[in-house]
Amino acid sequence: MWIYIGKRLIATVPILLGLSVIVFGMMALIPGDPATAILGSYATPENVERLNSQLGLDKPLVEQYFIWLGNLLQGDMGRSYALNRPVADEVFERFGATLVLAGASLILCSIFGLIAGIAAAVRQFGWTDRIVTFLVLIGISTPSFWLGLLLIMLFAVELQWLPASGMFAIYGGGGPLDLLRHLAMPAVTLAVVATAVIARLTRAAMLEVLRQDYIRTARAKGVSERRVIYRHAFKAALVSVIPVIGIQAGFVLGGAVYIETVFQWPGIGRMLVNAISTRDLLLVQGGVLVVAASYVFFNLIADVAQTIVDPRLR
């Protein structure tokens, strides 16, 4: 098991390296440069050139890349041009916030998705199934950014039950309850699509499993129906669902940009959007690296979980 994990971790290194090259290349292709972003309206070509030179951006791209790589290996992710702050500080702060949001969403979507999927499969063609199928369709068809805005309008402005934005109350805030109140809407909005996907998949997997011979055997043994569903069928279905949860984790990590924008969640998705817009190369590099690494890591966890559930994979 550990050897397997070790091998997988080592295999991620070339992927991360490849990514860093792609990002460097991509940022090079984007017209504009950090100096223009910093100088704003006062960006004359002369000022820009001077600033670029100060920031070390006039060196050839390949050289810049290796400088960055060298620094990275020594634990230094560089300094953000636009924010004038060490990249590592910014990236890990923002990433922490995203992890909280992503974590909450994942928990929500896993729980509700699995429950809904099981309920629909067990009462196939009954009302539960129809309602779940319907809700799933709504879930995968709703634009999340639109939904977020509607929720804010309803819960924050009209009813004033929940705060409209941010991660903590601005004064005297902090603490888990405060966090939960701020987390409620963004996590739910983010979880909607993932829940639908997981519910749909769980239902299909459960139906598939319930057709199997070993379910018949379980019934023939006189096992209670509840045990048949939740222990026999669900465990087998889980094997197919786990990789999807892994994929949703990745999606939620890097793709929560709309949610972060609408709810002003200080997450890494929005940081990256801004960083691209301000041509903050080092920040983009750092951010993409961290997100990609975590994505790979989550997939690894999903694979390991799958192996734990299904001994045939070992």
């Binding site: 792609i22 984007i30 990745g250 890097g254 998705g269 990256l272 691209i276 997100v291 990609a292």
Partner: peptide, 10 residues
């Protein structure tokens, strides 16, 4: 492995 939205944005 590239964050989905970011690839699109990039």
């Amino acid at each position: 492995a590239f964050p989905y939205i970011l690839l699109a944005l990039g």
